[in-house]
Design a protein around this nucleic acid. Structure first.
Length: 519
RNA sequence: CGGGGCGUAGCGCAGCCCGGGAGCGCACCUGCAUGGGGUGCAGGGGGUCGGCGGUUCAAAUCCGCCCGCCCCGACCA
């Protein structure tokens, strides 16, 4: 490929963006960003193709399917329920290259509005089979990380899942990490220890007049108790107007992600007041006391999720479901029911680490992908003809975030230093007014099976060398009058202080030998 | 909804106070020189100055209205 014909100029001045990977990608002609939308220039697309090949090849064969861009996650289950009827079809592994829309606001290259993803979907009859597959998958991905030279951290990620994050202060994703041990979790799903405030002396439940105290803050102030002694009741509704009541300690906030994970209900939003009143609760003075609560997920009544914090305290203040009144001395489970108790409160900086109890601190990074154990499932018929639920897991790797991590990991002040195997081309040929010799070199090197970017532009040597460093191909060749006088073409490796002259006649062979040795 | 700022070449901006020639940097084009680290010199193309109206001999510049973008406030938690 001739450099003069390659689309995408390198930028002399650093574009003003907030993170180093986007800056490098713009400077080195890997991408352009137009109104948050990413355009991959030829150099970038070549890297993406190689990266996706590397990602794809980490894993044993799976049947490949194609899902159109924007295909929703839940669609997998419906699709498989249609296709899988019998145990004879199981286990099955599917693979898909997808383009998924980011749920979060776009932010540079690490979080574009649409990102490419590779997904592996495993459906098993037994939990053991799925666990084995999962172990194998995780091992393969770990091998990929070492192959491409990054060391992301393992963390709790999404609901029912784990994943990897490349830690970086400019990363778009917020996490909580333990200041003492290895625990790491995304802000939405990080676990934490509730402060325990148990005592044996359970008070009687009594109404107390609290006119105007329709927020936790006002209630705590009026009764002169800490917010943690109150119970917060949050009403949410799912897409189909299914009502969910969440009960947490008054000092905590609910995590929608955790609730989705615990209930399987997607796209939760605050419930309307009329929906709240329709079940007998009073906005501002609500609690599960006296409501018809589901005893299990299949029962009639209101779905009530109790956070772990309701078991960590006694004698709470909670709403009386009457305007202007609360109840004091409220104790779980003596005074109210919940359908399930789960971890549904949002962890924040300073909370106790779930592993060791030390303080959690905010950390930033880039999510690269991870594994999720599906909470819902599909049915198939077993050998006896009975319906059974399959065990399902989903592994995902995100292409753009991984590229962002690679950009920052494999670069120096001069630009990229591509690992062999991911570089958009193998060789950067700097030609200084030696077109004939350059042509021979290109043919020779390409015959040896290596790809060459031939800088044939009419510009000064400085420009070409600087560009060679910025673009960062593993090998640089320089052919000039000077090099010819010294007996051939100058060879150097990006990022290393190696320079030597290779004879013109055997450049291809020599490079091939070098390549085998550094791969 | 209120307050403030901005709008001039592909991008970034100056000029406006104090009215008269539409400019600068980057990018682009041409030529010459240079040839081992974003080189030098010379020349060149490119803009309804956000829109409409007013004042004036004359408006990017002053005045009024409108449009668009950004920030702050308010509402909400």
């Amino acid at each position: 490929m001739k450099r003069s014909q390659l689309l995408g100029r390198t930028l002399r001045e650093s574009p003003q963006v907030q993170d180093p990977w986007t800056e490098l990608a713009l400077r080195a002609a890997i991408v352009r960003i137009i109104d948050d939308q990413v355009v991959y220039l030829p150099l970038g697309e070549r890297v993406i193709v190689r990266l996706m090949d590397a990602m794809r090849s980490i894993h044993p064969p799976a049947q490949e399917v194609r899902l159109q861009p924007g295909f929703v996650e839940e669609g997998w289950l419906q699709f498989l329920q249609d296709e899988i009827q019998s145990y004879r079809q199981l286990p099955v592994t599917l693979f898909a290259r997808r383009t998924v829309r980011s749920l979060e606001p776009a932010q540079g290259l690490a979080r574009p509005p649409w990102r490419r993803a590779l997904q592996w979907f495993r459906m098993s009859i037994t939990g053991e089979d799925l666990r084995n597959y999962h172990d194998q998958w995780v091992q393969s991905v770990e091998a990929l990380w070492s192959e491409v030279g990054i060391a992301p951290r393992w963390l709790e990620w999404r609901s029912n899942g784990y994943g990897w994050s490349y830690l970086h202060e400019k990363g778009p994703d917020e996490m909580l990490s333990c200041t003492a041990c290895e625990y790491l979790g995304s802000s939405e799903v990080a676990k934490f220890r509730r402060q325990s405030d148990l005592e044996d002396n359970l008070e009687e439940m009594m109404p107390v007049a609290t006119p105007g105290a329709d927020t936790i803050r006002a209630l705590a102030d009026m009764l002169s108790v800490p917010e943690s002694k109150t119970l917060k009741a949050v009403f949410l509704m799912g897409e189909d107007k299914h009502l969910v009541l969440v009960v947490v300690g008054g000092n905590l906030d609910v995590s929608l992600t955790k609730i989705s994970g615990a209930t399987g209900i997607r796209s939760l939003q605050p419930a309307s007041e009329e929906l709240i009143r329709s079940v007998g609760a009073e906005p501002g003075y609500a609690s599960p006391i006296g409501l018809e609560v589901k005893e299990s997920l299949q029962d009639k009544g209101i779905l009530v999720i109790g956070d772990l914090s309701i078991e960590c305290g006694v004698n709470f203040i909670a709403g009386a479901n009457k305007p202007g009144f609360h109840m004091r001395g409220v104790n779980f489970p003596r005074d109210f029911m919940v359908t399930i108790v789960a971890d549904v409160a949002q962890a924040k900086e300073g909370d106790g680490c779930p592993e060791c109890g030390e303080a959690l601190a905010t950390t930033r990074g880039i999510y690269l992908g991870g594994w999720q154990w599906s909470s819902s499932s599909i049915q198939y018929s077993n050998e006896e003809g009975h319906n059974r639920y399959a065990q399902i897991g989903l592994g995902t790797l995100f292409v753009e975030p991984i590229l962002a991590a690679l950009l920052v990991e494999h670069s120096d002040n001069q630009g990229m230093i591509w690992p062999v195997g991911l570089a958009p081309f193998d060789v950067y040929l700097v030609e200084l007014k030696c077109p004939k010799e350059a042509k021979m070199i290109v043919e020779d090197v390409e015959a040896a099976g290596l790809s060459v970017l031939h800088d044939d532009r009419k510009t000064s040597p400085g420009v070409k060398f600087t560009d060679a460093d910025l673009i960062g191909l593993p090998i640089r060749l320089t052919v000039s009058r000077r090099s010819l006088e010294q007996g051939g073409v100058e060879f150097s490796i990006r990022g290393k202080d190696i320079r030597q002259i290779l004879p013109l006649e055997s450049v291809g062979e020599s490079l091939l030998a070098v390549f085998c040795s550094i791969m």
